[in-house]
Amino acid sequence: VAEPALFGLLIEMGPALEAAMTGGAREAVFFKMEMLGYNVGQRLVERLAKDHARFTDTLDVVKFICKEFWMAVFRKQVDNLKTNHRGVYVLQDNNFRWFMNASGATTLQDATQAMTPFLWFPCGLIRGALAGLGYATVVMAESVGIPQCTFQIKIATGR
């Protein structure tokens, strides 16, 4: 499937969900996007990981997300992975694929603001993928300016 088709779908997702809700807040739309991402991530990871050797530890799982999962979804690998060895992982992508075609906003701040909805869906994707691999997590994303993007993963429970 061609990339523009997927981007089109992602762009329209927000307005469609909004239209389907009766007077909901913006946050509710974000929340739904995250949930959709979660569902997709969970199912996608099942397919991706089915031929993968058994994971040895948490780091192994996170590495899988950074490499294979990222490759499948964003067509590149994560640029930088940091951890505090206490369940927090920070994934940094300096050239986040889904920001590539963004345009229109005049200032960096506007742009970052405008892209916020597009961070919720991938957050869900990652959280879903990790859930599919047996880890309950909290995933947060932030961008100091496109196309850079950082995802912070907090592992809530091990398995």
């Binding site: 499937v1 061609a2 990339e3 523009p4 088709a5 997927l6 779908l9 992602l10 997702m13 469609a16 969900l17 389907a20 809700m21 739904k32 949930m35 959709l36 569902n39 997709v40 199912r43 996608l44 397919r47 499948a72 979804v73 067509r75």
Partner: peptide, 29 residues
């Protein structure tokens, strides 16, 4: 055009994303 001019994405990602949007809309409506 398909072979040389377009960037491709994971088809499963596309299908699953679309599917979950439809499911969500069914629920919301």
């Amino acid at each position: 055009v398909w072979r040389t001019k377009v960037e491709k994405v994971n088809g499963e990602l596309f299908a699953l994303t679309y599917g979950s949007i439809v499911t969500q809309l069914c629920r919301d409506f």
